[in-house]
Design a protein around this nucleic acid. Sequence first.
DNA 1: AATAAGGAGTCAC
DNA 2: GTGACTCCTTATT
Length: 318
Amino acid sequence: MRSTVCEQIGNTPQFPNVTPHPHTPPDPEGTWHDPGDVKPSRSLLGLPELGWPDIFQSCSEAMDAEDEPCLQKAAPHSLSPAEALGEVVHSSPSSSSPSLLDGQAEEGSLEQVQTMVVGEVLKDIATACKLLNIEADPLDWSCVHVQKWLLWTEHLYRLPQSCKMFQELTGKDLCSMSEEDFRQRSMQCGDMLYAHLDIWKSAAGMKEGREGKSSGDNAWSEVVSHYPSQPIHLWQFLRELLLKPNNYSFCIRWINKEKGIFKIEDSAHVARLWGIRKNRPAMNYDKLSRSIRQYYKKGIIRKPEVSRRLVYQFVNPV
DNA sequence: AATAAGGAGTCAC
DNA sequence: GTGACTCCTTATT
C-alpha cells in the first residue's frame, strides 16, 4: 500500500523530488545523528516551502503507524501547504465513473492522499495546541501566544532565534503581515515562519465555510476540543512528544514502545520545549530530570532494568 | 562534562 | 497537599 502511494507521489508533478527526511530515524544501534550536524540543504529543512515535508511525513505516518527508516518525503514545489489544504477543502470526493481515465484515477489517488494529509496536518496542529496551550486559530493569539508559537516553531525546526523581532505582536498582527514583512523581521527564517503560519491560518480557515465530510473535520474538532487545555503534567508532555515521532523523534523517541521505554535524544531540546510550555525560560535538563525522578516513587516513570543514560520507562505503557 | 540520584526550600494552584 | 521549579551535593559514566 505504501509503496503504491509513494510511487504515485513520486510520479506526480506536485511531488517531484523525493528526498530523505532530515529527521531520519536512528540506526539499530540507537545512535542518532543530529540533523544539525549533517547540515541538510535548505530545501530539506523546508525553506521556504517548509510545511510540506512535515505534512508529507505526517501523511506517511498515517499510512504506516511504524516509524520506519524507509519512509521518504517529498520536497514541495508547485503546491503550497495552504493551497493543498484549500484544494482538499473545496474538492468534491463524489464523482467516480467506471470509465475513469488514468489521469482521473491518479487525481483520485492524489485527492485521497491530500485528504489524509489535511487530516494529519490538523492533528499535528491539535498536538501543538495541546503542548503549547494555545488556540488553534492564530487570530485568537495574544502576544504571549505568538511568542510561544514562535519559540516552539523555532526550536522544533531548529531555526535561529528571531522571536524578539516579533515582540508585542498579537496573532491578528501576525496574520496581517506579508511574507515580505516576515523576511524583513527575520532574514534567516522569516519565510519559514510565514509558511508555517500560513498552514495554521489555512487550517483555521477550514473551520468556517463547510460542513463536516472529510477526515479533516474530525481532526478539526480535535483541534478545538483541546482548548482551553488543562495544565499538563511532565509525563503527559513527554508522552505527547513520543506519540508524534515524525515531529519530535529527533529529540525524544521510543526505544521499546510496548514496554514504554524511551530515550531523550536531545536533553537540552526537550527541556527547552518543556520550558516553553511552562513559561519557564530557565528550564534545563537538570531540572527536568529532577522532575522525572520525582515520578519514581509515584510509580509513573522509572529507570529501565538495564539503566542507560537518558533512557526512562513509563511504568504503565500505552 | 554530562548525567543520575535524591535532599530540601519555595511557589502556584 | 500536590506538582513542579530551583539549587544543591555526591556519585557515576
